[in-house]
Amino acid sequence: MELLVNLVINGLATGMLIFLLAAGLTLIFGLMDVLNFAHGGLFVWGAYAGIFTYMFTESFLIGIVGAIVTGALLGLITEKLIITPVYGNHIQQILITLGLMLVLQEMIKVVFGPNGVAVKTPSYLAGSWEIGDVIIIKYRLFIIVVGFIIFGIFQYMLKKTKVGLVVRAGVQDKEMAQALGIHIKRVFLYVFMVGAALAALSGMLMAPYSGVIYAEMGMEYAILGFIVVVIGGMGSFSGSLLAAILVGLAGSFMAYYVPVLSLAVNMILMAIVLIFRPQGLFAMRKERST
């Protein structure tokens, strides 16, 4: 029982972090048709900027705010300088965002130093609770709660507010939305910034969870994010949550029961999805033929 609960909590916590990363990816893809390979770079910048703010101010909350602001600013710069010039050209978009990813990763080493940084969990989130014979680590629960809150907020925004309506209309048919008088380029920019901020937040929350941050972690987690986006269906927000939880749980269970397979399990999951349901498990709309 204790083992099961712990594995589930581990899986959920990892899943939530991947979800925050993948949510931005999938929104940006659904709306702008841009697969942002630099997302991992934004993630790692969020982690470093957040943690350095946290160590400087000694307040975890200000650190989180720092990460989000950094992410949004980087998103703004990226959209304006990198995405806009190659808008509409898929090959160039893929190539250029990968280039940005490498620049961001190397810039981390220049600005913050090439070595990993150890991160401590803030005291009020450290430690664990004991419920009966089940030990629950506080920080993991914290991540799960934050993940669900953010999912709730976004789901509400997307489904119930005017902003969400505009974004959903853009995902469905951007030419039509534009014809109806929506400044779609501006919506792109905001969505990109929000996606970048989510990636940065994910990086910041990941830091105390893994205990150490390093420049290459961006690429590692970005790959998980891509896998989640493929499994969940590109452009599907709730799909990415379910897929992220699936990937997180599969990872945590495999790591315990069949450690050899834990590396490959995500790849196998993705391969199965690609064979049988290439548009993703939870994709609503059909893949357009273009």
Binding site: F37, N266, M270, A271, L274, P278
Partner: peptide, 20 residues
Amino acid sequence: LTLRLKSHFFAMLTLAFSGL
């Protein structure tokens, strides 16, 4: 596995595979 789909998938899957 991936060449049936849009170019994004190939880029992504090859990235994931090489990571593996």
